[in-house]
Design a protein around this nucleic acid. Structure first.
Lengths: 187, 187
DNA sequence: GTCTATAAAGAGATAGAC
DNA sequence: GTCTATCTCTTTATAGAC
């Protein structure tokens, strides 16, 4: 058993950077292998299902990362709802590199990836809606209102990322993030 | 000179439907040719630059269509600003098929298409910002405020389209459109 | 203006050596 | 576990007949 030259985690990081930038169709196995310092055939040892399986593992990894770094802080007791949203926003700012990097919910939902990939995207989005809704409720909003604000908050983040990508600047994304704490917790 | 079996306009319609659904990388010349009822080689007669040129012609066509159907009504004198936004929203609802179809600003801005394509996308977005800003000013908002609302209105539309694509439903998009007339014209 | 045919490169995928 | 080599299919693109 020869040792791995690259960890599973590092592989997912490289795959994420490629897929979030170019989308599922825009990334080839050769690009993935090159970015990981491996040959294509080596990828098939780890991922017998090829590109589909790599993409699926990647969106699952993103789901775990986001749940840990963004959703979890939103449920943390002992901190005010508004402060929790602030902390989540800091994590989002980092994940999206201040608006310079795209969201996998956006690029990976374009048809091409497997139905399993799309199912994971829906689960991630659902978890995000739940987390935002919960913190908004604890911030004092009614159940109905909290849910609507949660959805609109995510709408704004996703939209700002699209606009930032088109314009090649991130002022829009930063402005959006700044509004979030009040938007989610002030009726 | 044999007659064309498909008009230029019809070609752009077919290209638009493919590109907005699968993105630049996700569409092949064979798919484009099939959708137009032509052979690949015939496409090279009309578009010597291949897929890049077809994509460029497509985003230019979309720019024209949107300027005519969405931006122009926003500048129409003799109608109240709020009513003008309502009319524009009806056109947007049709163009995006009630939220079921993606925006080319979103999918075509993913790297892969030429720099010229991205330049057209920026121009379209700029025209959109200008049109929304103008109508918001005429609705009574200050210059600064109008511009911010315009940007946020587009952010909401783009974000809602992404969420609708992920969830496979359009309630989010419809709710977003419904808010727009007031959002853009009421301080 | 559209076709058939084909070239040339790139894609995903597998076999087998080490 | 990673490699080289290869296979097959798809893709972009061109040549030339009609």
């Amino acid at each position: 058993m020869a040792h791995k030259t690259i960890s599973d985690e590092e592989m997912m990081t490289r795959a994420l950077e490629l897929f979030r930038t170019y989308g599922f169709h825009g990334v080839s196995l050769k690009q993935l292998a090159d970015s990981m310092g491996l040959e294509k055939a080596s990828l098939y040892y780890r991922f017998p299902g090829g590109k589909d399986e790599i993409a699926l593992a990647m969106v699952r990894a993103v789901d775990s990362i986001i749940r840990e770094h963004v959703f979890k802080p939103l449920y943390a007791a002992g901190t005010s709802p508004r402060r929790r949203v602030q902390l989540a926003c800091e994590q989002l700012r980092e994940f999206y590199a201040g608006g310079k990097k795209s969201c996998t919910l956006d690029v990976m939902s374009i048809p091409g990836a497997s139905e399993e990939v799309r199912a994971v995207l829906r689960e991630t989005l659902q978890g995000w809606l739940d987390a935002f809704t919960t913190v908004a409720r604890e911030g004092g909003l009614t159940a109905t209102h909290a849910r609507i604000r949660a959805e609109e908050a995510i709408v704004r983040i996703e939209g700002a990322l699209v606009i930032s990508r088109v314009l090649g600047e991130n002022a829009c994304f930063e402005r959006t993030l700044k509004q979030l704490p009040d938007f989610l917790t002030v009726a």
